[in-house]
């Protein structure tokens, strides 16, 4: 398993859930040092800039902004993905968070969040190849296989 998958269900249409997830991120993203980004522990206001390539920011003041990620996919109402930057320079290329919104028959929206941790692998040298999706998928499968098969047996 190279990634974690977490699900929830919210009332309302997928479009509304998408909007609340993105435009209202500061209203639900948890507070405190485990969740917020400033190394000094200051708590700012989180915001996603709309559209692919938009920045994921924590704002502390007008000129005091920390970029904590980038929007990778902006396809309302179904799909949203962003990259979380590594917290320290040289800490790799960051991790990828993908969020899917699927309407259910009973007026709810199923929200599935997938966080791929593989991208925390440093990007120097050979690991640049990991930016190619097919290679990353191959490696991801390898990890999945490894952790299912090996870990319990040798552990």
């Amino acid at each position: 398993m190279s990634e974690v998958v977490v699900r929830t269900r919210v009332r309302g249409a997928a479009a509304a859930a998408f909007r609340r997830f993105t435009a209202e991120v500061d209203g639900w993203w948890k507070r405190g040092p485990r969740f917020r980004f400033d190394p000094q522990g200051r708590e700012g206001k989180l915001a996603f800039e709309e559209g692919e390539g938009g920045r994921f920011l924590e704002r502390f003041g007008d000129d005091d902004v920390l970029e904590v990620g980038r929007v990778l996919t902006w396809e309302p109402p179904r799909l949203f993905a962003f990259r979380l930057h590594p917290p320290a320079p040289g800490g790799g290329s960051g991790t990828r968070v993908e969020v899917r919104f699927e309407a259910t028959d009973d007026g709810f929206t199923r929200v599935t969040l997938t966080h791929s941790g593989l991208d925390t692998v440093p990007t120097g040298g050979r690991m640049r190849a990991l930016r190619s999706t097919s290679l990353r998928n191959a490696l991801s499968t390898w990890w999945a296989d490894l952790l299912r098969g090996v870990a319990p047996r040798v552990g």
Partner: peptide, 23 residues
Amino acid sequence: LAAVEALWSEQLESFAAHVQRRE
């Protein structure tokens, strides 16, 4: 991986509560 999963579980619970409040 388990630690990351626990963090996101808390986050999505918080998101669901936020939606419920707003709706």
